[in-house]
Design a protein around this nucleic acid. Sequence first.
RNA 1: GCACCCGUAGCUCAAAGGAUAGAGUGAUGGCCUUCGAAGCCAUAAGUUGCAGGUUCGAGUCCUGCCGGGUGCGCCA
Length: 570
Amino acid sequence: MKMNPFREEAIVRLAAATGLPPEQIDSALTYPPTPELGDLAFPCFAAAKARRQAPPAVAQELARGEFQKPSDRIASAAAAGPYLNITFHRHAFAEWVLGEARSAAEDLSRSAEGGGRVVAIDYSSPNIAKPFHVGHLRSTIIGGALYRIFEALGYRPVGINHLGDWGTQFGKLIVGFKRWGSEADLKDILALNRLYVKFHDEEKKSPQLAGEAREWFRKQEAGDPEAMRLWQAIRDTSIEYFKRIYDRIGARFDAYAGESFFNDKMEPAIHLAEKAGLTQVSEGALIIDLSAHGINTPALLRKADGSTLYITRDLAAAIYRYDAYRFDQLLYVVGSEQSLHFQQLFKILELLGYPWAKSCNHVAFGRVLGMSTREGNVVYLEELLDEARERALKNMRENVEKRPEVEDEAAVAEAVGIAAIFFSDLSNRRIKDYQFDWNRAISFEGDTGPYLLNAHARIAGIIRKCGIEPARSLKDLDCRLLPEPEAHRLVMQVSRFPEALRQAAEELEPAVVAGYLLDLAKGLHASYQVLRVKGEEEKLARTRLELFVAVKRILAAGLRMLGIPALERM
RNA sequence: GCACCCGUAGCUCAAAGGAUAGAGUGAUGGCCUUCGAAGCCAUAAGUUGCAGGUUCGAGUCCUGCCGGGUGCGCCA
């Protein structure tokens, strides 16, 4: 969708009249609290300061001067205290919006503003051999949403799944396998999980197990054949399991470069740090002291036993990623509890002299609280999705007389369940701890994913049943037939889609898109009793239908970005 | 103890430093012979944790408290 020419004209005229730079006016423009006041609002405080006048006087002057000139786009402007409220010729505006929505049917949101710049996004990145639970889901869906938002804005995103497939946890699993496991367990993700849990239980009683695990990981890093064989088997089993989950929730990645991929790249990275004079040996370990930079915890590059750590691999990975992708931004979608780790990492990159260090960003998100079964265990993702699907199915069957149109009941239930889970997560600003509640996460009423699906399916129903063919071209429409406040509200909301995407990308916050879609769906739900299509005069019916079609396209595009497929019937 | 994050309606959350702080949920009361009621409309609910400060203007920025979360050398 192109830049709004109505807004553009307002900016040009305000710039001419006030002498302020257009960019400043663009960023100052807001919206009036109610649509009756107008379609754009210009707060006159900055202009007043520049001219040493009172803001209301400036607003008056603009309304009586510059905005008296006739225009095809701007109908009027009125001073309201320190604000200048600008009202469009609404039929012309509607015509422009519907035309945009129509001509850009393949992808409404497609924009050139990203200019093909690369945004590398590290997300999901589960730890192999640990169960995939709801905490991993947050990274997966936030990262996936950012990926698609950047893509829509014309950036070139690269999705990287930095699998946790190297580290001491393999030592733990190998010890568990050696002591309590069988060969068959290597092929069974649940059995591997049990071994991992058992190791931790036993470790409390027998602390020497931790040392054994470290020793196995040391052997693994040294290339010990037995350790490598077991590592390979466990890794294969885990990846197969992850792919099944990703398939179910529609997660995709461009690269699966796990931590093990950087085995041969860690020593060069360590050498760089040594050459730069950053490192020192402390208690037998190789560290970087960052206390001069306000970080009181030193970063450990190498343990006393010679094996490497998480940050060593992340350091090598960042350097590799810049070489491979020449990214404009590198994003890490990882829980906020790791913020110290990323502070250290980014500071080290900066100290190594990489100018792109400042382009690295930790997209932190809060913890998932209250997430456990009756037995007090964490809930695995698959259980969660199954439960959501079952609740959706139950709901559908209870109201079967109201939903006679659903053909594939099971598929719809799955989609509704996923919409509920995804949206309840994505609708919160990511930094907040996420208070998980079964009833809320799987709720289908109010501000939920299914509410959005319902708006989409409702429009699909109108299109199917209204009895008229959609307009072939804009000539079949007459936007003067859309005088209702409900219609204007929808037109305004549709026009603001690109704005929502831009803000979401800027703040790295998919919740902005989620909130936007809720507004749009509310506007739709509040309008369709008033804006009837069926049985109306043909031109009126076509014009209203066209508006609904535009809303439907935006809902589908926005939902898709959040990882939620839209439904025609539900 | 130090560092980072969070305190907004009973609950879960919104609000680029800008107009009368808004939604959902729960509560109460209405709306299905008319394109789908997973919907709509209405009512009730607030000292934005506390105290200062900056600003024409602060829920938003700064300082100090209070409360909660997370992290703090050989896990990831």
